[in-house]
Amino acid sequence: MSTTRTLRFRVFRFNAETDYLPAYKIYDLEVDEHELMLDVLDKIKWTKDGSFSYRRSCRHGICGSCAIKVNGKSIIACKDNVFELADLFETDELIIEPSRTERAVKDLIVDKKDFWSKYDAVKPYLVAEIDEHPVKENLVTPEDAELINEADQCIQCGVCYYACPAVEVNPDFIGPAALAKAARFTTDVRDDAKLDRLEIVNELGKGIWDCVKCYECATACPKGVDPIGKITTLHNQTFEEDMAEDNVATRHAVGFKHAIARHGLLDETEIVRYSEGTFGMVKHIGVGLDMMRAGKVVMPWNMHNSKNLDEVKKLIKSSSTTTFKGK
């Protein structure tokens, strides 16, 4: 027998034309164990209030329309089971909100212009001379095809994008979905615009270096795209293709290798100096003095090394796969 439960839903209601502030309305509904969040939205609309608005189409996790937040968790409504959500949050009351309340237009419908403009920014299409009447396909090995596969499963739902804290505080950040899209093409052996794309995603303040590595995107993505993994791919390709500019971000990544080669461990003052350059250190003087006062700074003469450092040095020599020239 299927079981049912009565749950309370606190739902974000808002009409940008008439309302100054949103209101949370309460609906108590009987839900069965197989029901998904989208079933709840449909029930509210079809049995309680027809004016309740949200986006949906395919109802089985492939069209990307129905992104929302439940108790702060960024989801597509047609994939998450209601009981599981209630159990996860150990509650009988779930809060249903749009992906980003600040962008709400009506109830759960948000203005996604920001999301699509990022999508546009990475040249989201294969750049190649297209043979309009081909008699033979490009030969692509299964391994090469598999490289693209994960990123190609993205349905542009925006779940990761609206879960990303870096996007939230920096509206210019391209964000996980579009960066995964960029990686989808930079890993495609048929694409001719790899370098253009790497240039776009390397812009400081917007691109891959603004990711805070929180893994929210990978955790939230309903399609297993692993956007942060794709961002790492872009980082790697940046160095492989000698597209890395000589700046604070690239030096910071490279600096770890130098530090490890020198001491095995990181000299934290040195990594800041190496990344920022000696002049760049100026802006860290305040924090540096605070730290010094608290006894947090290891003086160069006190910096000690890992034991068996020669092993580390040897491995760095033999296992390095890229070099950094710095444009």
Partner: peptide, 22 residues
């Protein structure tokens, strides 16, 4: 066949045989 290959040329990521064909 032309249509499939046209899709492929435009970027479609079809599953492949070992020899790289679709």
């Amino acid at each position: 066949p032309e249509t499939i290959r046209w899709l492929e040329k435009m970027g479609a990521v079809f599953s492949r045989n070992e020899d790289g064909s679709i």
